[in-house]
Structures are given as C-alpha cells and as structure tokens.
Write a protein that binds this DNA or RNA. Sequence first.
DNA 1: CTTCTCACA
DNA 2: TGTGAGTA
Length: 329
Amino acid sequence: MNIKEAADRLGITPRAIRFYEKKGLLSPAKQESNRYRSFSDQDIWRLQTIVSLREAGMSLSDIKLALEKWEVDGMGELQYYLELQRSILMSEWLQLRQILDMTDRMIGLLKDERGLPIEHIFGLAAASKRLREQRGNWQDRWNFNRLAPTHDERVAAGSGNYADYAEALEKIVRLVVPAKGERGLDIGTGTGNLAGKFLERGCVMSGVDQSREMLRLCQTKHPGMETRLGNFLALPYLREQFDFVVSSFAFHHLSGDQQRLALEEMDRVLKPSGRVAIADLMVPAADDEAHAGFPSASSLVRWFLEHGYTAELRRLNERLHILYARKEE
DNA sequence: CTTCTCACA
DNA sequence: TGTGAGTA
C-alpha cells in the first residue's frame, strides 16, 4: 500500500506519516526501484495506534517510548488497542459533558441577567480550557510502568511514603464495611493490593490505573478482578455504578485543580448513599507551607461536606490520613 | 503519484 | 507538531 492510500484510510496526510517516520515511530519498507514506501498491514496497525494515541493527547516522544515497550512485551495487540481506544472515547465524552455544563450555565446567566457579563464569559472560557488541559494530561508521568515489577517489594518495605501502608489498607476496609456482592472501584489500583482485600470479602471489584504494566500484574494476582486503563480525571465508567470508591497512595499525584476534578469523577460514578475512602499523604490545612504539594485534608473534607456527603478524617501518622465520606440522599 | 529538503508557525 | 512550496 502506498502512502496516499494509507493516509486516506487513516484520515491523516501523507506529510504527517513521513514526519512520524522521521521521528522514528515507524519504518515502512521501501521499494528498491523507486524508493516508494510500501505499508504492510503491520505498518497500518502501528500507524492507527499512533494516530489514536495522538488524539488522546500523547506527545510523539511518549508514543515512541510506548511503542518500544509494547514490542518488547509482545502482548495482545487488539486488547491493548481497544483499551486505549476506550479511554480516549471516555475522555472525549467527559469533555462534551463539560461543554454541555458550561452551556447550561451560560443559558442560566442569560435568563437571570438578560445578558452575559463579559468577565463571566472569560471566566468560563478559562475554566473550561484549564479542564481540557488537565484531562488531556494523562500520560504515565511517574513512570509506573517501569516501577511495576518492584512495586510490591517497595510497599511491603513500608518505608518513606509507604510508611504504615498495610495499616492504611486495613483501616479503609474497616471504614467502608463492605457487604458481600457490593460493587467497588479502586482508583490507582496498582497491583491490586487494596482491591484484593475487598475481593476477599466477596465484593465485585474494578480497578483503574494508568499503567498497563501495573494492571497486568494485578490481573495475575487477582484474575477475577476487572481492570481498566484510565485515571482519576476520566474514570472509564458511565455513571452511578459503584457502592464504594477507594484509593490508596495515589491522590497526592494530582495538582489542586486536578483533585477537585477527581472528586467530581468519584461522585459521578458513585451510587446514591455510596461511600468513598481515600488513604494518602495529606497536610492538615491548605496553607501548610512546610508540606506544600500534598493534598490538604481540610479542603478535601470541605469539598465532601459542600456536596452532600458526611465526611470524617483519620490520621495514621504525620502525613498519612484516611478520608471517609458517605453520600447522603 | 512519490521523494526529499528548506522554510515557517 | 506538523504544513507548504518547489524539485526531480
């Protein structure tokens, strides 16, 4: 297949394909006589993956790394591609929801005030742009794929950020009080250590992580568990499916803006009267300069209270806190 | 129709 | 992260 046909079928320009080649993302065979590129089914498949990853907001250099890893692992291509595709569609869907939301608010403003104050328009536009940027930024920034093979050793050591890890997981289970058959979601599930405790108690668990490597290990440890590629900011579930949402040692990777988005996402997938438990490194108050960068326990609690939850906070050590909240209907 | 390079945003 | 023009 020549370059034009390939480009047409993938909905991109021949120029872009040559550009990807120059960047080292693919190397199609070239005909001896005229140096024309000729694209095999494998090449097309690879290109399709590149295009999809681009649409999901991944940079070309990240895509290059991902493809290299993928080749070494030799995993099921179709499954990987489809999971990727699902997470892309999910984040597009969330963006549409966001735009719809903003439109509704503008309609409301028009009704109430017979006109749109200019600062409101700018404010809304800026907010929605920020949201798009945050959501688009879902790459494996912390290289958990690389860390995956040794993850369990590190948490078992219980040192540094993972101090009191085992206690935190136990405490989450005691707070949530899972009933047999309940549906639970573990965000940033990693290798499924927390989700495993709920599986033992007869819950039906789903795990979301942005690292495919982590999820592969998780599948090995817990074959009965459903795992999906995704992250806090675009949970790959439609709505109101879960009796409880839990997360451990993951929330602190989010910035302040992202934390609020993440809480909205948890709220979105939680059934009425659902519970949330988050164990993570937090600082007591937002203005704690000494530990800037960690989530502030008090502002998280405030968010839940403002959104119709009851909330309580437990402290395990200097930084490690557990936040438990229940949706009140 | 394709190749490659240089310039440009 | 690509695009356009010009060339052979």
